[in-house]
Write a protein that binds this DNA or RNA. Structure first.
Lengths: 332, 332
DNA sequence: ATCATAAATAACAACGTTGTTAATAATGAA
DNA sequence: TTCATTATTAACAACGTTGTTATTTATGAT
């Protein structure tokens, strides 16, 4: 059996309410006895009972994170970052890898104070009865009634294309998942197309290469399609960390030189980027910043919810360009 | 505010204790009123308060899973499987990606009923004050005082080598992580060496190829070392799913044919194995079985702990050989 | 020394459940 | 009908906290 404040009260010879106050550092109890009680509680190995505390305070101090598809390395990194950041606050994080609806129900039972939702696919679910909810990853529908945080994909593509155009590239390809219903993927290639037009470049539809998946191998295969073309691009934007890994592989296999034969910019901004087979110049919101913003927002949401000030904002975060060595001026 | 059994009692016109019994399907309340109460509670959207319930029952019905390094695909699959299996019981699972010690403290605060621990590296930690604890992944020290479940790595290697030997191979290489302090990796290559000897084959130390990592790219690079040899093996055991992915890649790049040029058996037994670039024959405990055993064990542990029958067993699970098309008789 | 006041501690209610005990209503044998 | 017995429901204590209110003890001015 665990030790309770009553046990402490007994050995300290005070009432349990005094113990409670002492442990919460209330000014209502004398410094002397406070010290004594704290000492005893430590000796006895007291751990506050979570259930009791949340029963009276009506809050759990837990943030739930829903992550239905635990596979991509970028999201792994993001989750780890978020976990670290949350641990610096008074909250804790728990994770559920179940489908969204199931996860929501689990968290409802738990009465978590807030929920972070990674939306990768377009599951339908009913979030109406849930606690403070913050979404990462775009939904298709626009009638969401909860706030969300996202990288500004459009801006990222704009910056990538701008940089390549500045170097003199006019034939730029995008290798990414075009067939997915995942809204995040859709936003990426739409952003790319828009950026090409904005920079006055010709949009060659053949340069939109579908990986039909998000694994490194999909990137590898799709790059093969590129080599079948007669009129090849001089620069490539890779749709994700994993995909870009496959692109590098395909290049090396054909003894092609980066950046002399092809300039490459990869999407995503994780530390691992620097340790790839070839260090790629990349574009994306740094995961650290992303995590910080997500944590800050969900906690604000949780703590303001009492006053019902839940406004449904959509925070599109600013990407950063990380210059490494995979881009150069095109050969003439 | 959430609806409580008292609210239900009010609209049903009974006492709250009757509501409690009705919802718990107690024989002490008349079928008629039971139905009425259940109907009302559904209409009002009642969700039992988790904190209150666990306060009185002194159990949380939560299993915590500690997974400090969320990267490998095999473990992703295992976690998902475990989560699914747990959801079929009356328990729920929560996941922590923090270092072991931190995670243990979090779970202690939560008062989870049981903990599943994935030990990948050799962190030191103090599990003495924790609840029922079950470990997956071998520890270096032998003085653990908690039970564990593991694939029988030695047996797996035995079966792999046996199969290859049966096909006529005498020159078998192992490509895996030899430099790690991760005990699971150590067991694998030690098991391989033992198996080679047991089958009366000559153990060529050059055939133990160090990937120095667990990524697919590590497997790819290590395979390169193999091609530098003059006296090449005819068969390869890949140390993990990811590593084997890299091996396949290296083979294809050199236009080598599997299984005519090299027979390959991969470690790990996940469904994704069949969808690899090349469907590999593999050896390992099926994740489904592994998950089932883990869940069964932790629940048994949790529910028997009251009677203090925690015996420190070590369950080495039996691997299975999955025949696909990556092995053949060696060429003469 | 006496009393008002402040400081320190104790007592108690509440949070939402479950399980036990007490009270009431229904049933049936005399 | 009356009383014992059973079926049904109500009342209450408990779980371990926190916050509010009541009580005791110490302090200081008169």
């Amino acid at each position: 059996m665990n030790v309770t404040i009553k046990d402490i009260a007994n050995v300290a010879g005070v009432s349990y309410s005094t113990v409670s106050k002492a442990l919460n550092n209330s000014p209502l109890v004398k410094e002397n006895t406070k010290r004594k009680i704290i000492k005893i509680s430590q000796e006895m190995g007291y751990k506050p009972n979570f259930a009791a505390r949340s029963l009276v305070s009506n809050q759990t101090k837990i943030i739930g994170l829903i992550w239905p598809t635990i596979e991509r390395i970028v999201l792994s990194t993001l989750v780890t970052e978020i976990s670290n950041q949350i641990n610096k606050t008074s909250y804790s994080m728990i994770l559920s890898v179940d489908p969204v609806q199931t996860s929501l129900e689990t968290f409802r039972r738990f009465q978590v104070d807030g929920i972070i939702l990674f939306e990768e696919n377009n599951d339908e679910f009913d979030a109406s009865q849930s606690s403070a909810l913050l979404s990462y990853g775009v939904t298709r529908k626009d009638d969401r009634n909860y706030p969300k945080i996202d990288p500004n994909h459009e801006q990222a593509m704009h910056m990538a294309v701008e940089y390549l155009a500045m170097l003199g590239h006019t034939q730029i390809a995008y290798i990414g998942d075009l067939s997915s219903i995942d809204p995040m993927q859709i936003q990426k290639y739409k952003g790319f197309k828009k950026a090409i037009k904005q920079h006055g470049l010709f949009l060659n539809e053949d340069y939109l290469i579908d990986t039909e998946g998000l694994d490194w191998y999909n990137g590898y295969t799709a790059t093969g399609k590129l080599f079948k073309m007669t009129n090849r691009p001089t620069a490539i934007v890779g749709g994700s960390y994993d995909i870009s890994g496959g692109i590098i592989r395909a290049m090396k296999e054909r003894k092609l030189h980066i950046p002399n034969d092809f300039s490459i910019i990869s999407y995503d901004n994780v530390p691992q980027m620097a340790n790839m087979e070839f260090p790629l110049t990349s574009i994306g919101v740094p995961v650290g910043e992303l995590a910080a913003e997500i944590v800050k927002s969900i906690i604000k949401l949780v703590e303001s919810e009492e006053m019902n000030s839940i406004d449904v904002y959509s925070n599109k975060m600013m990407p950063k360009l990380n210059l490494r060595s995979s881009c150069a001026r095109p050969r003439l």
